[in-house]
């Protein structure tokens, strides 16, 4: 009697663990493809927002220099093409804001002009720093080049976030210059 009391509980627990693990493995296998597809679709959709004219995007290898003097980091580059022709690049870059990293996506066309800017991730104060992420502000960067984009005024009460946005755009231009040299 006592013996079964020693053996049964761990046995049942082990069995339950095994069954649950097996079930998870199956679900993982089944959802693997849809998850990958959803990931690519989400990445494409956010790139398309910045380069509305493009029909295909492909990830590029990062250039050798990825950090600007101000400490902003270039994280990813996607090449945008329309009808087989390269029309520009989407750069993802991050810089330190008021509280934490501000991640910015910036589209730059072949002439070196900004097509659109979007803050994709931030943890800034809602109502102050977050104003920088609104289109009212980011639309000012459309058509700017490396110099004019650095000269755009910040938002009062959101100085750190505005600076972070401009630093990240600076990192995007750093990537652009290196790509343009190669082409």
């Amino acid at each position: 009697m006592k013996r079964t009391g020693m053996v049964k509980p761990p046995l049942v627990l082990t069995l339950i663990c095994l069954i649950v693990t097996a079930a998870l493995a199956i679900v993982y296998q089944v959802t693997l493809t849809p998850i990958q597809e959803a990931k690519t679709a989400a990445a494409e959709a956010s790139c398309r927002e910045l380069m509305p004219d493009a029909d295909a995007f492909s990830e590029l290898v990062l250039p050798t220099e990825t950090t600007t003097d101000s400490g902003a980091q270039l994280l990813a580059i996607s090449e945008a093409s329309a009808g087989g022709q390269t029309i520009g690049w989407v750069f993802t870059a991050a810089a330190s804001g008021y509280s934490g990293q501000v991640t910015v996506m910036c589209g730059i066309d072949c002439d070196g002009l900004v097509t659109r800017v979007k803050i994709s991730e931030h943890t800034e104060t809602p109502g102050l720093g977050s104003k920088v992420a609104e289109p009212d502000y980011t639309d000012q960067f459309i058509g700017a080049d490396a110099e004019t984009s650095a000269a755009i005024d910040g938002i009062t009460g959101a100085t750190f976030t505005s600076v972070a946005l401009k630093e990240a755009i600076g990192a995007a231009f750093l990537g652009y210059q290196q790509i343009a040299e190669v082409e």
Partner: peptide
């Protein structure tokens, strides 16, 4: 406290 750590160490 938000921004304190970043402010002190300016990272």
């Amino acid at each position: 406290f938000s921004g304190v750590a970043d402010g002190i160490f300016s990272i």
